[in-house]
Write a protein that binds this DNA or RNA. Sequence first.
DNA 1: GCGTTGGGCCAGCCATGTTGACCTGTTTTG
DNA 2: CAAAACAGGTCAACATGGCTGGCCCAACGC
Lengths: 170, 170
Amino acid sequence: MAGPTPTTSAPRTASALFLREPEIRRGIELLYFGYSHLTRSIDGELAAHGLGRAHHRALYFVARSPGLSVSDLLALLAITKQSLGRVLGDLTSRGFVEIRVGQRDRRQRLLHLTTEGAALEAQLFDGLRERLSAAYAQAGQGAVSGFWAVLEALVPVAERARIEALGSMR
Amino acid sequence: MAGPTPTTSAPRTASALFLREPEIRRGIELLYFGYSHLTRSIDGELAAHGLGRAHHRALYFVARSPGLSVSDLLALLAITKQSLGRVLGDLTSRGFVEIRVGQRDRRQRLLHLTTEGAALEAQLFDGLRERLSAAYAQAGQGAVSGFWAVLEALVPVAERARIEALGSMR
DNA sequence: GCGTTGGGCCAGCCATGTTGACCTGTTTTG
DNA sequence: CAAAACAGGTCAACATGGCTGGCCCAACGC
């Protein structure tokens, strides 16, 4: 459906609606503001531990998929080895993340949260849950599936599998 | 799909549903990946003009609300005067943004796009529109209002007015 | 045994955010 | 009208979190 042609005579298959500028601008703006407010909401807690958002993203995915490898995490975060190295170094030196050598493949470093790491992640997650569940409740149940559907459609098909697999790596 | 109640017989105040961890994690992850992919999609075009994402955000809001003041823009972006100053300096020196002294209040600097600025913004907007309208089409019309509703609910009430006003400043 | 892979690390750079202080005009207000 | 409040600009210094390119080691697979 990529090309719902902005042509005039178009059959108004509703797809025409989706091309109208106001709807696009509204999406861009809400996505920006919604994302900003949610992420900003935990900056304080992070700073209290001397961490930033980059640390949280890593912490989050390690919590989500315990035992994932460094390259798994690199693919999720879409940053360079260097950048991740710094973040991961901070997290391990502060005792939040533990690195174990892979059993099948001893080149791999598998990432796990320590008890303290799990506690921190849970605390940060609580902050996000509070805000997001309030938003879900306010928007209504039907809205949530729409919210997911649009966002998922924004992710290139090639990437979606990685997201689906998140819960079930181990 | 859409996770309609995996619950068995629960009194569906629905609110209980929204508190379940999987739904929250899915929201966090899709919001992160969706936002990331959309914003990354125009990095190339921006870089071709020597600009970054910060420049785009300013350019976007000036396009959206022509004639807005520096402090209006500061409030939208939620950054400091310093940071905005640099970005705005780049945009004006490259001829994308024009600064006019306010008529009612001569302390104000009102921001407008130049012809080149408008052309650039339109080009960048096209990139975003392409992706977002494809996502809207793929998710379906009903999904879009849910997408908006959840995101809007993520924005603190005090901020919502600012967003609603976007189209109609001038 | 050799090429590939997973990972670490160095040095250096860039973009974008921050603070705090201070200055200039302009508007508002007592 | 004088003083205070406001809009905006600017300086210096610093933090975060990206990036490149290169080089290295250990382990795996053929």
